[in-house]
């Protein structure tokens, strides 16, 4: 028996801890909250769509979740409104607020935190009007229209924060600046990438409609900026979206904006 005791010791290795496999589909919630000064606290919570019809979802009902949000360390439970929206209408978001949310979902606690950034400083625009000649592709014989100077937006950014410029036509039925042909008319808002500098140039050809445009400069946090990287899943590489949310996905971030108007004329 003595000579076999050695073997028994060896077999102990085999009895090391076992790790159970995680479920194939992680039903972690999708959180979406843009917290902006002057607005009430509200968080949107949804579920992911599983690819497999056999994927198992958690038992939790979104509407029954107990979502807590702490403002500068003081925690309150949000009220469920509808369609996954939770809110607290008693508190208005302010600059510099430190906000944290958490709720239990499945076996884990979903949580995230953000700080409300400062308002953009010294937002200015190179021109208050932009004259664009209407362009008709069927009238090429008369020559290409003259291209005006681009619009330059600038602000102060001593700390290298991320900023996002959003341009929106606020007219009800704006007249197009070009012939869209058979294509669908573009949105009234156009999308730009976040920048880390203190200027942004809007090329004239970006404007698809005439009329008043609202130019909104958002001071944003890094986590929101990262979202723009992650939309690049291709067949070459499936990117895992970055998120600041623990046990969940999506975005929980503070933003702060300033606005200018620009008139686009013919």
């Amino acid at each position: 028996m003595k000579k076999y005791s050695y073997l028994i010791i060896l077999f102990i290795f085999w009895s090391c801890e076992e790790n159970s496999l995680s479920p194939t589909f992680s039903d972690i919630p999708v959180v979406e909250a843009y917290l902006q000064p002057g607005r009430i606290l509200q968080v949107q919570i949804d579920r992911q769509l599983a690819f497999s019809s056999e994927a198992a979802y958690q038992d939790d009902e979104i509407s029954e979740l107990e979502v807590f949000l702490s403002v500068d360390g003081v925690q309150n439970q949000l009220t469920y409104a509808a369609d996954g929206l939770f809110l607290d209408s008693t508190v208005l978001v302010q600059t510099g607020m430190e906000l944290e949310f958490e709720f239990a979902f499945g076996d884990g606690i979903v949580k995230g935190a953000t700080v409300i950034p400062s308002k953009p400083v010294d937002l200015s625009i190179s021109a208050s009007t932009l004259a664009i000649e209407q362009f008709d592709i069927s009238d090429l014989a008369s020559g290409l229209p003259e291209i005006p100077n681009p619009i330059d937006i600038s602000w102060q950014n001593p700390h290298g924060s991320f900023y996002l410029v959003v341009v929106e036509n606020i007219e009800n039925n704006p007249e197009p600046t070009k012939d869209f042909g058979e294509e669908d008319p573009p949105e009234f808002v156009f999308r730009n990438e976040p920048v880390r500098g203190n200027t942004f140039q809007i090329p004239p050809r970006s404007f698809n409609y005439y009329g008043t445009h609202r130019i909104i400069l958002f001071h944003i946090n890094d986590d929101y900026a990262s979202l723009y990287d992650d939309g690049e899943s291709t067949s070459q590489n499936l990117t895992t979206p970055s998120t600041g949310i623990e046990n969940g996905v999506g975005i929980f971030t503070g933003i702060h904006s300033d606005t200018l108007n620009l008139e686009v004329t013919n």
Partner: peptide, 26 residues
């Protein structure tokens, strides 16, 4: 493998689709 998808609406009103994957090698 990819396991699911979700949308996030951006500040410009557009939305982006994201994909999640299963836990590693599960």
């Amino acid at each position: 493998a990819p396991s699911g998808a979700y949308d996030v609406e951006f500040l410009d009103g557009s939305s982006q689709e994201y994909f999640t994957v299963t836990s590693k090698n599960s």
